[in-house]
Write a protein that binds this DNA or RNA. Structure first.
Lengths: 337, 337
DNA sequence: CTGAAAGCGCTAACAT
DNA sequence: ATGTTAGCGCTTTCAG
């Protein structure tokens, strides 16, 4: 291999070392290393420098660079629950990819919703001169903005704070609800139950609104008795089975995939086939389950990756100065409809 | 609120500003801000400085600090799949918490296993003067170490590379397999089937070894016909149902929770009750499913959080100079046994 | 007890 | 076409 693998042991190779080795000044090295636009460097000199760089295994010190340039290449991401859900990971991933694409690096902090930790995390990011901070939650909700966030540019991801003036990137719950319902409508169903969550949230109201809109567009009267409450877990879906059976629905839109999973069990116990006897669509497109249920669950995806990516785009000012960005929730068709 | 909220707009408050405001030198400010051990600073001076800091809303510039100190407070974490699994998130979380505890900050990079991205990520970390790198995978396996990793301290997390000399932190698969089996043994089962994965891996061989050990310790002869192959997904578990029924087993240890989930379906279709008719244990303790199956699944947890945390401890030299750290997989008792 | 000054690795005018 | 020279914000001897 080439290079002397400096970096371990003796001090790291600096620009000055390269300059000395190439017999030029550090300014010259800086110019060739950064491929400066208006940099008139002789071909031979350039080559000498490049050789020295390769020879010594030189690596620029990003910290020194940002210090002298004044602007850093960090973007902070504070998340409330990296661990407890598969969702946060997708947000990180999207943010990561997008940041990278623009030459930025993510500084991630997990706070588990603890305000103390949250403040420390934000402080740490500020001390690292982040360009701005993405504040994200693992499920879509309204939040109280931590005071410290006002000290830098902030964009809210998967959450919002009305009146805070902070831009927010959130999933389009209403469109999602509409989409889910339309999938069922398209399959010919007219009597569609909606197993909605019992927890007040943008998801609860948004998806319901979407459900109604879809129905109306199809010329079907909204029937309140078709929207059934369910604790948003497998247990809730299972428990709701008698209700959906009694409702006479031929299809059901579940608040999320876990509810659908519970409902599958309940339906199966009653000898019903999906989708022959009754169709089911979920919401979230949760990896571990949706694709592997029997039959694989048709659902609507929560666009976490996109939320993260859009978040950094907004932070970088690439989306204009929007107030709220709503990201679409696309349908994922499998075999339960 | 106190402080003038500098940091937005006009240039950030520097140490020099504080010094000027307090009528002292920057050296003095540095001393009081960092609470330097051998720092003889008069009480009044100290207070003047502290007041100025509060007044101006001064924040130390972490980048400048590390530049002048030479050593950075960054630890890199490169992961192959933040997005596709809930597991990686736990590793990050554990690493994050532990790093934080020691005053370090995590630089996370997701590579999706792409070698090109991987190299860029490592380069970026090196340029940011990380103290070392945690290289992690989302499932336990042997890897080929990227060349670039040799340029800094590295610890492998949830993977290993024999002969590389790099320390590795991995789950104790054998103990896990033993534990799972023992849970069944303890419930009185003697004829225990093992639905093992068809994919060669430390998990495949380790868990099998643990299963055998547990059986032997209980004085039960190993019966090859009881270990059945299963694709490590719900589908595999479902498909294996006839086999376990034919085996005459009264309990089954599944290679992972998803297999158990599929098996649940298969068993239920055959009118079998869990655990009355047949007991089931899984492996992984996968959040979204294990706790919510009916009945909730007893399983063995993959200690991802601990892997991440132990990884940084090893990197910081807090664990002595170990070669391989095996982290225990604890049983999680629910209601399927 | 406090301040002056050198320097960390790099960039960016400004000279040459 | 290349070199000189200031800094960037902070730490750290070393004087006073």
């Amino acid at each position: 291999m080439s290079g002397t693998d400096q970096g371990r042991g003796g001090h790291p190779v600096t620009m000055r070392d390269v300059a000395k080795a190439a017999g030029v000044s550090v300014a010259t090295v800086s110019h060739v290393v950064n491929d400066k636009p208006g940099a008139r460097i002789g071909d031979d000199t350039r080559k000498r420098v490049q050789d020295a760089v390769a020879e010594l295994g030189y690596r620029p010190n990003a910290l020194a660079k940002t210090l002298s340039q004044g602007s850093s290449r960090f973007i902070g991401l504070v998340a409330d629950a990296i661990a407890t859900t598969p969702f946060a990971g997708q947000i990180i991933h999207g943010a990561q990819d997008e940041a990278w694409k623009h030459g930025y690096v993510l500084l991630v902090a997990n706070t588990e919703g603890n305000p103390g930790v949250e403040n420390d995390a934000i402080a740490m990011m500020l001390e690292h001169q982040v360009l701005g901070i993405l504040y994200s939650t693992w499920f879509h909700r309204e939040i109280a903005v931590p005071e410290a966030l006002h000290q830098t540019d902030t964009v809210l991801v998967d959450c919002f704070a009305d009146g805070s003036g902070l831009p927010a990137v959130v999933p389009d719950e209403e469109q999602g609800g509409r989409t889910a319902t339309e999938e069922l409508l398209a399959a010919g169903h007219r009597r569609i139950a909606f197993l909605n969550t019992t927890t007040p949230s943008p998801a609860q109201s948004g998806r319901l609104a979407g459900y109604r809109t879809a129905l109306e567009s199809a010329g079907i009267a909204f029937d309140e008795r078709l929207v059934l409450p369910a604790v948003p877990e497998q247990e809730g879906g299972y428990a709701a089975t008698p209700g959906v059976l009694a409702s006479g629905a031929t299809a059901v839109f579940c608040h999320n995939d876990r509810v659908a999973m519970g409902l599958y069990d309940g339906l199966r116990e009653n000898g019903l086939q999906i989708p022959a006897d009754i169709a089911v669509v979920g919401f979230d497109n949760q990896d571990v389950i949706a694709a592997h249920m029997r039959p694989p669950l048709s659902t609507v995806a929560l666009p976490h990756y996109e939320l993260g990516a859009a978040g950094v785009r907004v932070l970088l000012g690439l989306e204009g100065d929007v107030e709220t960005v709503r990201v679409a929730c696309p349908p994922v068709r499998r075999q339960s409809v």
